[in-house]
């Protein structure tokens, strides 16, 4: 039986906002990425899994229990990180962690302390005075401190600096080894690529694809921006590689697996500068799903 199961749910907020006929499942021990641009319906789906809102039609269940009516049962083995971190401003970090631990009925703060040390979070600070990154770390500590079997994480690494993002990815990998079931929304490719087994992609409220991560990786491309010494060679290079010239001396090329031949072609031209970056999720959509993404 699937741990998380979303069956044909619709939640219509009007003006084509919301989610429409969405279905997917997350199996036991699986890490599922939930990808999509902002406003695509990731959080709306997660809110239904948390029992904050009812679907207009369809059903959502976790461990076979209805997410709205049995929410309190489900929460016994679930850790949740909200997409918008709204802690209680009148408390210090430690007071908040203690309070939530009591609400969750945790016997010990051992794991919370480990997590705070791991993320280098000083919990004595008033939440009101915390930076965005600190608040995000607070959210992560609260989600993971009960060592739950299921984790639902809404944009977990937003607001973290790159060092902490990597630490977070390492932690997800450790949790995965322990057999946790994780649903994680994101719009950062790298994060999903390193951690997830499968990915559900959502756009404008519809699931576009539920795919194995390997298939996505194959279609993922790097963008090379090459600056050449003169406009003529830029034009020639663009024609040869199918890149997009910017009208000056620069050409942007999207390259997937054939980097070797791209570099060898490039060697024949007078290169002034070369930068490489990964595709953004939006660019990826454009490529992977053709004209569907705007």
């Amino acid at each position: 039986m699937s741990v998380i199961s979303v069956n044909n749910i619709t939640k219509d907020y009007g003006n084509s906002r919301g989610v429409f006929n969405i279905s997917f499942t997350v199996e036991d021990g699986e890490v599922m990425g939930f990808l999509g641009p902002n406003g695509a319906g990731k959080t709306t789906t997660i809110r239904q899994l948390m029992g904050f809102i009812h679907p207009d039609s369809g059903s959502v269940s976790i461990n076979g229990m209805d997410c709205f009516t049995k929410s309190h049962e489900i929460q016994k083995s679930l850790g949740y990180l909200p997409g918008e971190i709204a802690l209680m401003n009148d408390m210090t970090g430690m007071e908040f962690i203690r309070f939530i631990a009591k609400m969750k009925g945790l016997a010990s703060l051992e794991r919370a302390k480990e997590l705070m040390a791991y993320f280098e979070l000083d919990p004595r600070v008033r939440i009101k005075k915390m930076s965005k990154g600190m608040k995000q770390k607070m959210g992560i500590v609260v989600a993971f401190m009960q060592d739950p079997a299921i984790l639902i994480l809404d944009e977990p690494s937003s607001g973290l600096d790159p060092l902490m993002q990597n630490k977070f990815i390492d932690m997800i990998l450790r949790e995965k080894k322990k057999g946790k079931t994780i649903l994680m929304s994101s719009h950062i490719f790298e994060e999903v690529e390193k951690t997830c087994d499968r990915v559900a992609i959502i756009r404008q409220g519809y699931i576009v694809a539920v795919d194995n991560i390997a298939r996505l990786q194959k279609s993922k491309r790097k963008i090379f921006t090459v600056e050449l010494s003169d406009r003529a060679s830029a034009a020639a290079f663009a024609e040869k590689t199918g890149g997009t010239p910017d009208g000056e001396n620069r050409v942007a090329c999207a390259v997937s697996s054939d980097i070797d031949s791209f570099i060898k072609t490039l060697a024949e031209y007078p290169v002034v500068d070369l930068t490489a970056r990964s595709q953004t999720l939006e660019e990826f959509f454009l490529h992977f799903y053709g004209g569907e993404a705007k």
């Binding site: 309190h72 049962e73 679930l78 909200p82 918008e84 709204a86 209680m88 609400m103």
Partner: peptide
């Protein structure tokens, strides 16, 4: 309004 109700509901305590 502030959204911190999410933390209260993400516990095994019924509404």
């Amino acid at each position: 309004d502030s959204g911190s109700m999410a933390y209260l509901l993400a516990t095994p305590i019924k509404r």
